[in-house]
């Protein structure tokens, strides 16, 4: 199955990505950022809407633009690019609300087969990591590139 994705733009360091979501509410500019954490080599994946009027980033915005799958597929694309440049990195993702975490879980499950070939996927329950299994609820997610 061919999944539709948005065209990504990036800064020179491949850390900040931008794309435009086009859906029922019009065109919404989205930003993806791989944030360095206090743990060496571990990055937090964050994304949200960019307000063109104020140039501010709204990390709690829920666009409901009717293109969730396409947006998540684009985030997976950014993950591929980031790991291509940072092969030894670990990338963490969590949501600010239970519904956001659920959305990420659904997204990972959707791309599970494709991602499993290239990445180790873990789900976090409290302060432990487990190999990701579709259908299990987690508090966060960790992705690590596989070396073949």
């Amino acid at each position: 199955m061919k999944i539709e994705k948005y065209h990504l733009k990036s800064d020179h360091t491949f850390t900040y990505f931008e794309f435009i979501s086009i859906g029922s509410k019009g065109a919404i500019r989205k930003m993806i950022e791989f944030q360095e954490t206090s743990i060496p080599n571990l990055y937090n994946l964050a994304f949200g809407d960019k307000n063109p009027e104020t140039a501010s980033i709204d990390d709690l915005a829920i666009s409901n633009n009717g293109d969730t799958q396409k947006v998540l597929a684009t985030v997976v694309d950014a993950l591929y690019v980031f790991f291509d440049r940072n092969p030894e990195a670990l990338v963490y993702a969590t949501g600010s609300t239970a519904s956001r975490i659920r959305l990420y879980r659904i997204g990972i499950t959707k791309f599970y087969k494709e991602m499993q070939d290239d990445f180790h996927l873990y789900g976090q329950i409290e302060n432990k990591l487990y190999v990701f299994e579709p259908g299990v609820s987690y508090d966060g997610f960790l992705v690590q590139r596989k070396f073949k």
Binding site: L8, K9, E18, Q35, N44, G48, Y80
Partner: peptide, 28 residues
């Protein structure tokens, strides 16, 4: 599987900035 990404120099202004501080704090 790595997609082609266009480099947009206008995004370089974000380098060194945390765009989503709440998300980073939550992750930490």
């Amino acid at each position: 599987k790595v997609p082609v990404v266009a480099i947009d120099p206008s995004l370089d202004k974000y380098q060194g900035k945390i765009l989503f501080p709440e998300k980073l704090a939550l992750a930490e």
